[in-house]
Design a protein around this nucleic acid. Structure first.
Lengths: 138, 138
DNA sequence: TTGATTGCAAAGAATTTGCACTGGG
DNA sequence: CCCAGTGCAAATTCTTTGCAATCAA
């Protein structure tokens, strides 16, 4: 339950935090949301939580490691519940659909490249962009 | 010479455009600049070109395929002269140094993944982040 | 000449912050 | 009760736009 997640993260259990965490956990198909989208979902559920608070809470979640922030093409940030396991993303430039994947060979080569260039890797981001199966024939 | 590049791109040859293109071509070590950085370099050279113009010109260059725009971590866009050949980037999170690389195996696997997930790929962005050789021991 | 290009200042979009108020522990 | 957390509006940051003046062809 969310309450415990919040406590574990060292965050006081407040209504906005619980609600926002709920929203994120509830997402099955669309795991990646902008602050704005979270805001709208909350409004639909009758919760009147300020947009500023959503940004603040999501940033806290990010710091606490509960959530990951991505900068997809186009500018605005999207947030995703951190599942614990690393993965990369492929994004449909038409409908916004996002799929996740992991490719061990790619991961391995990234490490190799960083090494060859003398970098010690801390992070990486790989985004593929294209048309998903539903959009490519339109 | 820049004049010809501009003409080929269908752009009228104006002072701001020539100057900005010069700046970009002059970069050897630091090929990736923000609009702000271009602006400052121009000021140092005594050219008084408005920041808005720089954004406009860089956007035109992007459209014309002369320049590529990247969204590195942190938000602001950086522009790089388009060398014609695709490459990915590794960025030092301490000093901002950027290296470029290409890995055929990674490219190949990306295509494979997109295919498996039913996407037709149009583009991708791969950024590795870490400490470069100069920064990792500090 | 004349439409394209600039500069400036103002508008926008996304995100953050200041501050008085509220609520969780 | 008391301080962390919130809401709102104002501030920031990066980027784009409107419009009159200017410039290249």
């Amino acid at each position: 339950m969310e309450t415990q997640d919040l406590r574990n993260a060292g965050l006081k259990v407040t209504l906005p935090r619980v609600k926002i965490l709920e929203i994120l956990e509830k997402q099955t198909t669309k795991r990646h949301l902008t602050a704005e989208q979270v805001y709208k979902i909350l409004l639909e559920e009758g919760e009147d939580i300020g947009l500023a608070t959503i940004y603040r809470v999501l940033t806290q979640f990010e710091t606490a490691g509960l959530v990951t922030r991505h900068h997809f093409e186009g500018g605005n940030s999207v947030f995703e519940l951190d599942s614990g396991k690393h993965h990369d993303h492929i994004v449909c430039i038409k409908c916004g659909k996002v799929d996740e994947f992991v490719d061990p060979i790619i991961e391995e080569h990234q490490a190799k490249i960083a090494d060859k260039l003398g970098y010690s890797l801390t992070d990486h981001s790989l985004y593929l962009y294209g048309f998903c199966s539903d959009c490519k024939n339109l």
